[in-house]
Amino acid sequence: MKFRGKIMDVACLNHFTRVITTISKLTKMCVLRLTPDNLFFVLSGKVANGGVSMWCELSQENFFDEFQMEGVSPEDNEICLEVTPENLSRALKTVQNAKAVKLKLTKKHCPCLTIAAELPTLSSVSRIVTHDVPVDVIPRRLWHEFKEPSMPDFDVSIYLPPLKTMKNVVDRMKNLSNFLVMEANLNGEMNLKIDTDLVSVTTHFKDLGNPPWGDEASQDRGPSQIRDPDAMAQTRVDIRKLQQFLMGQQVNPSKAMCNIVHERVVHLILLHEDVSLQYFIPAVA
């Protein structure tokens, strides 16, 4: 098992740091899957984390100038590590002005992701700062838990309003209630609702547009084609989970959308060029 990567470009380093920071806002622990082409940050929906799951996909060649890896075996050419994204993010933030950053899987007292940054100097002697972030290597037999989640058979898919507006609204609603109902229809309308003993609040977004999901998505899913465009699909979620998702946004996505499976799950997707982030919030009764 070997892994080493090198980032030389400042813009790539900044971008990579922002992605990791976003992930660190969403979860304390997650799994980093390394393949020859991609990096995946995965959180599988366990009860312990409130059933929330996450899937973040990065293409290595968009970030790394050098990327070498050797998986556990030629057939399973992958490495699966449990990491604390907060630690990675903190280490990366301190080396933002580095000339080059190397990421390496090392064995010190325990397995570590070693971040070695070459900092600029005025003299000819180079300065290298090294961070060792401890990780756990996940054995092959547990890998099946960290596969890409399948696209849910959603009732409604809709583009999200500006995330900042949504964040403001959700922040205030959080002060008033623990739960929030998210509902949307195929007419480009989305509502956020709370209802308590003291107050009921509904925020109406309209003209958001519904993403076209191509033929393969709709073909075998006839019902979504003939669905009444005004009919709302709704899911009641833990407001903190949604707030967390909105709070962590460091990457300004080019596309943000949401799929709702009626009374089952809210599936949020952010796309930004080479990065995609999926976040699943389960329904609460």
């Binding site: 309003p161 507006t165 609204v169 003993d197 003291l198 107050v199 009921s200 609040v201 509904t202 925020t203 109406h204 977004f205 309209k206 003209d207």
Partner: peptide, 19 residues
């Protein structure tokens, strides 16, 4: 009856019913 607020910013409308 509740106190009803209609709030609007940038085309987004929020309706609040405060008991």
């Amino acid at each position: 009856y509740p106190l009803t607020l209609f709030l609007e910013e940038g085309g987004v409308v929020t309706v609040c019913k405060i008991n």
